[in-house]
């Protein structure tokens, strides 16, 4: 009985198969991304889209809020999270203006983000620059990783 050891498609020189191969590698990439354990886009589906990172000392919450002034933002911090709300205003174009394109949107928003650990509410800081909001949330002492020295038994 003849057993084909090489897959049939490698033997056939048909251009359609390279397209299938490309699709397969795209899917592989997608699953690898999911396996990394990091939530990738799409996220919660709530405006604004938010990135959260951490280092040993702090959590950093960042959001893209173009055209929103610091005074139009309302940020409050609780023990393990924060809420961001506000309104994005877009000045109307004025009398007699005709739109070619209107992709930017105005409106209100409100979002709550829960962090994986407790934070030091008193030391939280927020800043806005070039349309990006950065909230620095220092970790509470209990949440910070601690170095434990191992004693050697004599």
């Amino acid at each position: 009985m003849a057993i084909l050891r090489t897959p049939v498609w490698q033997a056939i020189n048909w251009p359609g198969f390279s397209e299938l191969e490309r699709m397969r590698s795209d899917l592989d990439k997608l699953f690898r991304g999911l396996a990394e354990g990091v939530l990738t886009e799409p996220g919660a589906g709530v405006f604004p889209l938010t990135n959260v990172t951490e280092d040993k000392e702090n959590y950093y919450v960042r959001a893209e809020l173009p055209g929103i002034k610091a005074e139009d933002l309302d940020i409050s911090v609780t023990g393990d999270g924060l809420s961001i709300s506000g309104e994005r205003k877009i000045a109307p174009a004025g009398q007699g203006a005709r739109y070619h394109r209107k992709e930017r949107e105005a409106g209100t928003f409100s979002r709550k983000i829960t962090l994986p650990g407790q934070i030091d509410v008193e030391k939280a800081e927020a800043s806005c620059s070039n349309g990006i909001l950065t909230v620095l949330l220092p970790k509470a002492e209990a949440t910070k990783p601690k170095q434990i020295s191992v004693k050697t038994a004599d």
Partner: peptide, 22 residues
């Protein structure tokens, strides 16, 4: 970037959202 483009008799105005760009 998301843009708004509007036109009056005198000028064309373009607004573009580019957060993070100085």
């Amino acid at each position: 970037p998301a843009v708004d483009i509007f036109e009056t008799d005198e000028a064309i105005t373009l607004m573009a959202d580019m957060p993070g760009v100085k």
